[in-house]
Amino acid sequence: MIDHRLQTLRVLRERGTVTATAEALHLTPSTVSQQLRQLARDLGVELLEAQGRRVRLTAAAHTVLRHADVLSAQWERARADLAGHRAGTSGRLRFCAVSSALAALVAPAAARLRERHPGLAVHMSEKESEDAAHLLLARHCDIAVVIPSEQTPAPGDARFAQSPVLDEPQDLLVPAGHPLAGHAVARLADAAAQPWIGSPGRPDQHQLMLAACAAAGYTPRIAHEANEWFAVSALVARGFGVGLVPRLAPLPPGDDVVRVPLHGEAVPSRRIVAIVRRGSEEQPPIARGLEALREAAAR
């Protein structure tokens, strides 16, 4: 119902290059270029400017995109209204999520949907948070479960609707036999003198650790670095340091490590958020998916 070339322009804004846009939309770069030239000709304005090997959106293009975002949101609402005339218990719902949220939240939510609505086909994929925007815009995903960062859509982004799913606390990970291992809870300040395992490859997690320790009154001494939870766990188990792990992060069985819940003023946590295309949250399959996520988080 809405000119498909506007969607091509919206994806180009997100992906930055004609080649990346073509890949996201499963088109050839020449088809994308042709669509945008035709759209510019029909609108009577220039949409793109050459910038080396890349292209830059003109001021006119940004004006077109503001209207395209409104049109897209209104079309999503129209689809929701039309879906209200149907039972809404069949169709397809696609989740993408970071690994820990996929395992602890999305999978249980999908199982609940399968029990309640067997005609609703649910597809799940593990994706990084920074991929959420283009996956939603390219319609490869309906609900993205992410950890907010500078690379995810801002809360006020008019293209998306966002809702918090869970505030996930962080646990202190120590080796078995450590003085803190027998404690029911600990303060982050109790680990001030310990060597730490940093995770620079997970910027959001690493910055959370640094900020939490700073709030507890010290800068952690980073002795070693590891990004995957099984690697962090292995280093902690062998006494190379302590670390922070999200409550939902799975750890390999058999490692001699202990999770110690934190309490006090400097208790770090990370927010997990569900993002959908604005206006689509009223479509029955997506509304049911969001409800199932909230139920999984409550459990």
Score class of each variant (00 low, 15 high):
His85Ala: 14
Arg86Gln: 13
Ala87Leu: 06
Gly88Phe: 04
Thr89Phe: 03
Thr89Val: 13
Thr89Trp: 13
Thr89Tyr: 07
Ser90Gly: 08
Gly91Thr: 00
Leu93Trp: 06
Phe95Leu: 01
Cys96Asn: 13
Ala97Arg: 02
Val98Phe: 08
Val98Gln: 02
Val98Glu: 10
Ser99Tyr: 00
Ser99Asn: 12
Ser100Cys: 15
Ala101Leu: 04
Leu102Tyr: 13
Ala103Val: 12
Ala104Pro: 02
Leu105Glu: 01
Val106Tyr: 00
Val106His: 02
Val106Glu: 01
Ala109Pro: 01
Ala111His: 11
Ala111Tyr: 00
Ala111Val: 06
Arg114Gly: 14
Arg116Cys: 03
Arg116Asn: 04
His117Thr: 00
His117Val: 01
Gly119Asn: 03
Leu120Cys: 06
Leu120Lys: 02
Ala121Lys: 15
Ser125Cys: 09
Ser125Thr: 06
Ser125Lys: 11
Ser125Gln: 11
Glu126His: 08
Glu126Gln: 14
Ser129Thr: 09
Asp131Tyr: 09
Asp131Arg: 11
Asp131Val: 08
Asp131Gly: 08
Ala132Tyr: 07
Ala132Gln: 03
Ala133Leu: 12
Leu135Val: 10
Leu136Phe: 12
Leu137Cys: 12
Leu137His: 13
Leu137Val: 14
Leu137Gln: 06
Ala138Val: 05
Ala138Cys: 04
Arg139Asp: 15
Arg139Trp: 07
His140Arg: 15
His140Phe: 15
Asp142Phe: 05
Asp142Thr: 03
Asp142Trp: 04
Ile143Arg: 08
Ile143Pro: 06
Ile143Asn: 09
Val145Cys: 06
Ile147Phe: 14
Pro148Ser: 05
Pro148Gly: 05
Glu150Asn: 09
Gln151Pro: 01
Gln151Leu: 15
Gln151Ile: 05
Ala154Ile: 03
Ala154Gln: 15
Ala154Asn: 05
Pro155Glu: 03
Gly156Thr: 09
Gly156Cys: 14
Asp157Val: 08
Asp157Leu: 06
Ala158Ser: 13
Ala158Phe: 12
Arg159Ser: 02
Phe160Asn: 01
Phe160Thr: 00
Phe160Arg: 02
Phe160Leu: 03
Gln162Cys: 07
Gln162Val: 05
Ser163Leu: 15
Ser163Glu: 14
Pro164Cys: 07
Val165Met: 13
Asp167Tyr: 13
Asp167Ser: 13
Glu168Val: 08
Glu168Trp: 11
Pro169Cys: 12
Pro169Gly: 13
Pro169Ser: 09
Gln170Tyr: 15
Asp171Ala: 15
Asp171Arg: 11
Asp171Gly: 10
Leu172Gly: 00
Leu172Asp: 03
Val174Arg: 04
Pro175Gln: 04
Ala176Pro: 06
His178Ile: 07
His178Pro: 07
Pro179Glu: 07
Ala181Arg: 12
Ala184Leu: 15
Ala184His: 14
Ala186Glu: 07
Arg187His: 12
Arg187Val: 09
Leu188Cys: 01
Leu188Thr: 00
Leu188Ser: 02
Ala189Asp: 05
Ala192Trp: 10
Gln194Leu: 12
Gln194Arg: 09
Pro195Lys: 09
Pro195Ile: 14
Ile197Pro: 06
Ile197Cys: 08
Ile197Ser: 09
Ile197Asp: 13
Ile197Asn: 10
Gly198His: 04
Gly198Trp: 02
Ser199Thr: 14
Ser199Pro: 00
Ser199Asp: 05
Ser199Val: 06
Ser199Cys: 07
Ser199Asn: 09
Ser199Trp: 00
Pro200Ile: 06
Arg202Lys: 13
Asp204Ser: 11
Asp204Thr: 09
Asp204Phe: 08
His206Cys: 06
Gln207Phe: 15
Gln207Trp: 12
